[in-house]
């Protein structure tokens, strides 16, 4: 496998602007989607952990099941929503990075919600009376629990990041794989595979894997550091 590795390395070393643009877009789309999913999913997951309402069990089961939502289906839903003939067509978002972010957010939101719920639920069992005693009601407990569960939550966020950065089905459908505009690492890999440029495809795969590895290493290191520092 010396070939693809050498290709990957020389690709990086060449600083090819098209490649850099693709890497940049991939990171921007995925990281923004993770951020959005967290902004929505962390509070929602925590609320789901603390709230008691009829049908709560069903909601939990649905979110757990949605973790397995096929990316293509998520993409298709967003496509139909954003298409000019769809309800949000006038926003002209189809085939833009924003559409890709929306699709990926939809894809990882269930992961963030479900993992947050499970982490916060466990923590709440331990903290409930103490927090109540200190004067924090359920609502006020949400940020406290999220903050104290941050190391475990990081795992969920990373799982979401992994799913988003690896998927191609959704971004291909809603992004259109437009060169220089919505082409990401994964859609470029798909394209190069279709062109029979397997060496280049594998090289791109290696770069993608390296990026994912680096981000995971950073997150893991941060988690270890926090665990050591904060108990």
């Amino acid at each position: 496998m010396g070939g693809p590795f050498a290709t990957a390395f020389s690709l990086i070393a060449s600083g090819d602007p098209a490649l850099m643009q693709i890497i940049g877009l991939s990171l921007r789309v995925t990281l923004t989607a993770v951020l959005m999913a967290c902004a929505v999913g962390l509070p929602l997951g925590a609320a789901l952990a603390l709230a008691r309402f009829p049908g709560r069990g069903a909601v939990i089961v649905v979110f757990n099941a949605l973790m397995g939502l096929p990316p293509v289906v998520a993409g298709l839903i967003v496509y139909l929503m954003l298409s000019r003939s769809g309800p949000f067509g006038s926003l002209a978002l189809l085939f833009t990075p924003t559409a890709m972010i929306i699709a990926q957010t939809l894809l990882i939101l269930p992961i963030v919600i479900s993992l947050t719920r499970s982490v916060v639920e466990d923590l709440w069992a331990e903290y409930r009376e103490q927090l109540l005693s200190l004067g924090a009601g359920r609502l006020r407990a949400v940020p406290t629990l999220l903050w104290d569960g941050r190391v475990s939550l990081l795992t969920g966020v990373l799982a979401g990041f992994g799913r988003a950065s690896a998927e191609v089905g959704a971004v291909l459908i809603v992004g259109g794989n437009i060169a220089g505009h919505t082409r990401t690492m994964t859609t470029a890999i798909t394209l190069e595979t279709a062109r029979g440029q397997l060496g280049l495809a594998v090289a791109l795969g290696i770069i993608l894997l390296t990026l994912t590895l680096t981000l995971n290493a950073i997150a893991w290191g941060a988690g270890q550091w926090a665990r050591g520092r904060l108990g």
Binding site: T32, L35, M36, A39, T96, T98
Partner: peptide, 14 residues
Amino acid sequence: LSAASGLALIAALP
């Protein structure tokens, strides 16, 4: 704050 700035980033995209 960081969540909000993330949202602002999205809004600026198109």
